[in-house]
């Protein structure tokens, strides 16, 4: 890994049912994060690998890194 990403918050979304992962992440990013901060969302949902990028695109945030695994980690940077 070339550079370590500074993580400001982590969210456990494992086992949540549709559609809560996106709802929780989007709320957290909007209400509790500062622009430039990074949230790590941990999820077991395979669908998240398409849904999170689509959400980031519409909401104008950026997924800076994805760690794939049984529990996948999405590094989400708040841009606005």
């Amino acid at each position: 890994m070339s550079e370590e990403i500074k993580v400001d918050a982590t969210m456990d979304l494992k086992g949540l049912k549709c559609p809560l992962p996106i709802v929780r992440v989007s709320k957290k990013v909007k209400d509790e994060m500062q622009v430039g901060q990074v949230l790590v969302a941990e999820t077991t949902d395979p669908g998240a690998h398409a849904d999170f990028p689509a959400w980031a695109k519409t909401s104008g945030n950026e997924i800076v890194k994805v760690e794939k695994g049984d529990v996948s980690k999405f590094y989400i940077k708040k841009l606005k």
């Binding site: 996106i22 709802v23 690998h49 398409a50 849904d51 990028p53 689509a54 959400w55 519409t58 909401s59």
Partner: peptide, 19 residues
């Protein structure tokens, strides 16, 4: 948010397929 994301996913599914 959920509806907009779903629409976005429909528009640019090519980008998300591989993941």
């Amino acid at each position: 948010i959920l509806a907009d994301s779903a629409v976005e996913k429909g528009k640019s599914i090519g980008e998300f397929k591989e993941g």
